[in-house]
């Protein structure tokens, strides 16, 4: 019984939140890694792309809500996703046209593209704050929980409750569908294969008649989809605040690098590694240990390894360790 309680408490406070957060990071990291693989630079504007896309989704959600449209138990924001992705895709294609394409044609060194992405980041940041303001926005509606802690206790008779938020379940389901679709696209379709070919060997791709501009455009569209979905899921699960999205850059990049930049599978694994470490190290283990250890040994402190404010430190330390001991990432990215 004690052990069961410990497992439930662990699931409630660590496993479930970390799986949801990890899925969100994985989707974000996939966007970063695709851009790196195809356009060969680290896109620092990615956090703000997520913010922009989420903002568009929020605006559409509000509009739908004002029209009385709802999805019942599911958040209305899901209905806003396609429109938000379309708008964000147009934005990304526009920035590519106005900013990045020039440097691509020049064959500029990647670092110039990175600096250009700083500029795009600042502009997007300004646009988002101009339109929706810097404050917190909540836009989740529908059923809040799949199962509440109270129901769970009643059902199982355990002392500990397990609450699963709708947004957490939704995150996992969506992430699985999106990742499956992405891998199907990359491995099974002609266009997807041409993207992998382009990422692998640009010159040979040109010799095979693959059109680089088409590959780049499709990449941006996919990245728009990934960024908006990641951003909306994160916003539903927590809340939307432009600055938080900027700060997501660090764990998102850490996920992509830990997995190996340019490697989609690595990005997913990296996302979960970062999320589990972050949640695990900042969780107060007192409760779980209390169930597992005999009374006399039960810890009196919180057994929290790090204060939650240091969660950045976790992604950072993992990042540094990986860079030191395996610079190409766990899955051999294309880092040069």
């Amino acid at each position: 019984m004690e052990a069961l309680n410990a497992i439930v408490a662990l699931s409630n406070f660590v496993l479930v939140p970390a799986i949801a957060y990890g899925s969100q990071l994985a989707l974000g990291a996939l966007g970063v890694t695709l851009i790196y693989g195809i356009l060969r630079f680290s896109n620092f504007a990615h956090g703000d792309t997520m913010a922009f896309g989420t903002m568009v989704a929020i605006l559409f959600t509000w509009w739908l809500q004002s029209m009385g449209v709802s999805l019942g138990p599911l958040p209305t924001a899901l209905l806003a996703l396609p429109a938000a992705i379309a708008v964000t895709a147009l934005l990304l294609l526009g920035t590519d046209r106005l900013v990045y394409r020039f440097y691509r044609a020049q064959k500029a060194v990647p670092v110039i593209m990175v600096i250009a992405s700083f500029g795009v980041m600042l502009v997007l940041n300004g646009v988002v704050r101009l339109i929706i303001g810097p404050g917190d926005q909540r836009f989740a509606d529908g059923e809040r929980f799949i199962i509440t802690a109270l129901d769970f206790r009643r059902m199982t008779g355990l002392d500990e409750g397990l609450a699963i938020k709708t947004t957490q379940g939704l995150t996992l389901v969506t992430a699985v569908i999106v990742v499956a679709a992405l891998f199907w696209f990359l491995n099974r379709t002609r266009t997807g294969k041409s993207m992998r070919a382009f990422s692998d060997n640009e010159d040979l791709a040109l010799l095979s008649g693959i059109n680089p501009e088409r590959v780049v455009a499709i990449t941006w569209i996919i990245v728009a989809g990934l960024a908006v979905i990641a951003g909306v899921l994160y916003g539903l699960d927590k809340s939307f605040k432009p600055f938080t999205y900027f700060q997501l850059l660090l764990p998102v990049f850490a996920s992509a690098i830990v997995g190996g930049l340019g490697n989609p599978l690595g990005a997913i694994v990296g996302g979960y590694i970062i999320a589990f470490s972050e949640v695990g190290l900042t969780y107060a283990w007192k409760k779980v240990l209390g169930y597992l250890m005999p009374e006399s040994l039960a810890p009196d402190g919180l057994v929290q390894l790090l204060s939650t404010d240091y969660k950045f430190a976790v992604s950072f330390v993992i990042l540094v360790l990986v860079l030191l001991f395996r610079p190409t990432g766990l899955f051999r990215g294309k880092a040069v």
């Binding site: 294969k193 070919a197 692998d200």
Partner: peptide, 15 residues
Amino acid sequence: FTSLSVEENLEMGAY
């Protein structure tokens, strides 16, 4: 294309 399979290499040739 080192990371693509032999068959995918051929497919890309016929892109």
